[in-house]
Amino acid sequence: MINKKSSFSLVVVLVISLSFFLTVGVSAQSDKFRIALVMPSTVNDMAWSQSMYDSLLAIQEEMGEEDLEIAYSENKYVISEANTAIRDYANRGFDLVIAHGSQYGAELVNIAPDFPGTSFAWGSTARTFSDQGIDNIFAYEPHAGQGGYVNGVIAARLSESDIMGFIGPIESGDAKKYMLGFKQGVKAKSPDAKVKVTWTGSYSDVAAAAKTAKSHIQAGADVLTGTSQMVTGAVGEAKKKDVMWFGYDVDQSPLAPNTVVSSVVVDFSGPVRQMIDLIKEGTLGEKIFPATLENGGIRMALNEKALGDEYEEVKSLAEDTVERIVDGEIEISLED
């Protein structure tokens, strides 16, 4: 027979037990770090978006899927759509929402204050908006010029015509920095070489990149390089005409193993790892993370297959150039 007192005790025990299990469930969920990535193209674009996605996968491999959840939204080139996705992830309680595009900055200024417990990150930029009193935005910025410089030195060493073509999307941000570094690298090695700079006006127009590559080749270029996801068209054209391609963002050699000589790989895993640690300690923003040759945020991927007999010599040249940049002996100017 259970009296009133006993039944009350039973209810209390049940409630306490249930709340214990619920707490365990919640704490297990809260232990799992959750990152959301909003990007302008796709995770397999062989360029900007893929560089961040690959970096997150590398971190997830270290931490384990049980400790790190990754969610992503692709093709958010329309900023209003990106806004919705960023807000949605923040609403769903993600610990870190990465707005992977400098075009998303104006949206973040409005979104971040609405979610003071969520950390946001955006790049490529050196602005965290802390000057506006916002304390939950991190910034990351690849020093694209460094990688461009190393590629330029290698390109100048390998070019026979001393004519090279750069194909960029829009004259700003990483594309411009990479171009400036590439030109300076070429000039350092071959002062008389020419680098012809072209802009297609689009990040995604593959045909425009291919057409421009064709024009460069017909004008005598035997080395091509460029940035953004459209460059796959240019790589295709380089492959057809058997001229060398120098990549940026990810190792682009799988695109055309005999054509892509060297790639600048942007690795965001270091900055994101640091962000995770800071967030766990309670710091949600106000810090800028440069990705450089010094901190491993930028590294070179040489393609032995495309380089053949010249691989060892080019490798040594690249390593020497990287060392001189890291030592501060070479400084890359952001002026043309």
């Binding site: 193209s41 796709t42 674009d45 093709n75 689009s202 995604s204 127009d205 593959v206 045909a207 425009a208 291919a210 996801q229 796959t232 068209g233 790589v235 295709g236 054209e237 492959k239 057809k240 695109l255």
Partner: peptide, 18 residues
């Protein structure tokens, strides 16, 4: 003609408004 003739590549939104 674009993906296997002119560009020899395919990716999302290859045609870009053509």
């Amino acid at each position: 003609s674009l993906s296997i003739g002119v560009l020899n590549v395919f990716q999302q939104n290859l045609t870009s408004g053509m």
